[in-house]
């Protein structure tokens, strides 16, 4: 295991760790993002956005297209700077990079010239400049975790879409970042593969105790996977509702039949579409 920080992990909770855990790992306070446009009027993508995420929590961001979900994610990944407000990760406004924050995109984004193993090791290669034996061993462990241990030497194009996304998840875990950002990670997959990977993600979370921020279009997915669901409204993107999902764990697709699950889903749907949502979807 790569030690990336002296912070306690969730695996052996101590009184100190509990104290640390009470402080949110991710803090977004009064964050605004404005994009300049060539025509003049700047576009406000996110406005006065506040969200705290605790250690080991899974939080989903849902909302209509263009509500700034991905903007929030890209900001946490360090790909984008907030125009106003503060973004704190682990109490430090400057923590960035795969060692602290890892990201999984909608598309697997494996580099087609590298084998699966080397793709998983890519963040190590960028961070350290070279890949050691222990890194390779860790990459094999992660590939085993996502069920791809026999695919290490294959090229990305030889794998199905679901397998490619599993490899991308393994890559996001290679540096043992505490935070995993997922931008519609299962959005490009077929429905069956998607359900399969959702359960895998719950399993990976149970084993690795990552803090996960998930952007999704699927209300069902948000309720199934999350501890809390943040609903965003569009133009400008604001936090509209924050819902604690109190459904017992471990969850499975059978959880979707629980009355509570259905109530949560309906509440999110109402948040997004308004009261008319029962009859007519607003685009």
């Amino acid at each position: 295991m790569l030690a990336v920080s002296d912070m306690p992990t969730g695996k052996n909770p101590t009184p100190d760790a509990d104290a640390a855990a009470s402080k949110p790992l991710i803090e977004l306070s009064h964050v605004g993002v404005t994009f300049p446009t060539k025509r003049g009027d700047p576009v406000v993508a996110v406005e006065d956005f506040n969200l705290n995420i605790a250690r080991e929590e899974i939080v989903s961001l849902v909302g209509p297209s263009g509500c700034g979900k991905s903007t929030v994610l890209r900001m946490l990944a360090g790909l984008l700077k907030p125009t106003s407000g503060d973004v704190w990760i682990g109490g430090d406004p400057n923590l960035r990079g795969f060692s602290e924050v890892a990201i999984v995109f909608q598309r697997a984004t494996l580099l087609p010239w590298l084998t699966i193993l080397k793709n998983v090791l890519y963040p190590v290669r960028v961070l350290k400049g070279r890949v050691g034996a222990e890194d390779i061993a860790r990459a094999h462990d992660l590939l085993a975790l996502v069920g791809l241990d026999d695919m290490a030497e294959r090229m990305p194009h030889e794998l199905s879409g679901g397998m490619q996304q599993r490899a991308a998840i393994a890559r996001s875990l290679i540096l043992d970042a505490k935070i995993l950002l997922m931008d519609e990670p299962f959005g490009a997959l077929d429905a069956l593969t998607r359900e399969d990977l959702q359960l895998d993600l719950l399993d990976i979370h149970a084993r690795t105790k990552k803090t996960i921020l998930l952007v999704t279009h699927s209300i069902n997915e948000a309720v199934l996977l999350s501890d809390r669901v943040a609903v965003m409204s569009a133009r400008p993107g604001r936090l509209q509702d924050l819902i604690e999902i109190d459904i017992p764990k471990p969850r499975s697709h059978e959880s979707a039949a629980l009355p509570a699950f259905i109530e949560y889903s309906q509440r999110i749907r109402d948040d997004i579409f308004g009261p008319r949502g029962h009859r007519k979807a607003v685009s």
Binding site: F98, I103, F105, L111, W113, R125, V126, L127
Partner: peptide, 29 residues
């Protein structure tokens, strides 16, 4: 070079030179 590949390199903390060598040039082959 696809934008997502560049995002990947940037999140991994790649310098502009590393980005060229590990992503842009191989893509340009």
């Amino acid at each position: 070079t696809p934008e997502e590949m560049l995002d990947l390199a940037r999140v991994a903390g790649a310098s502009p030179l590393t980005e060229i060598l590990t992503v842009r040039l191989p893509h340009a082959v």
